[in-house]
Amino acid sequence: MLSIDSLHVSYGGVQAVRGISMEIPDGKVVAVLGSNGAGKTTLLRAISGTLKLHRGRVESGSVSFDGAELTGRDPAETVRMGLVQVPEGRRIFGRLTVEENLRAGGMGSKDKTAKAKAQQRVFELFPVLQERSAQRGGLLSGGEQQMLAIGRALMASPKLLLLDEPSLGLAPRIIGQIGEVIAEINRQGTSVLLVEQNATMALGVADLAYVLDVGEVSLSGDARELARTDEVQRLYLGHDSEEAHAAPRVASGRTLTRWTS
């Protein structure tokens, strides 16, 4: 289980995450929703150990995985502990072939059999990657690149997969496929932390969800129930507030934890 406890992160004095606490239980898909600048990517950086590359730092609070503290570790260590992040915007290695991209994904471990197994799993999930394995990553379509980015991360056989806006810039049909893939990866036993602006897809696959607003958790709870609240309907599911009021309301105090700062 990943536990985040009163996490504060800042970039050179500017606070981007202000006291976030959340839990990602084993075997679950947890969605984190929030608009641009809410602090979603910063949260993932704090988990994966890449804050330093952006001159950001954890000011206080903790991030721990199965009891082991993650703050202060470097990204390679985090990968070896079983947490792998798929970065926002896919960031595949465009000049490397698909096969080399996958090889790069397995670079954190020396276990050859585990890597062979992981590769087989990736090719079963994404047959297109096997067909294109000798092609340069940069020549794939956007959807294929996202699949490669996810496949590449799976090469490290993560216990927890961190996805940063996998739907970004993709057509609705492809977004649907990504959602199915996430559900399948989770069925195979990998926990998922899914950061999204596309709430429809995210709440469709997630068990639990958190809503971030300017660096703080504003709402959290069961994903399906959260999808029915006014706030989420209005802000993230594109319904206007009248419609949301007409929808059956969930008593926020009972099933949802409302966070106040």
Partner: peptide
């Protein structure tokens, strides 16, 4: 592969566990 991946995108290479 590690060398070329890091040269192309260091942060992403780091996210893959490349030191």
């Amino acid at each position: 592969v590690a060398m070329r991946a890091s040269a192309e995108d260091g942060e992403t290479a780091a996210l893959m566990g490349i030191r």
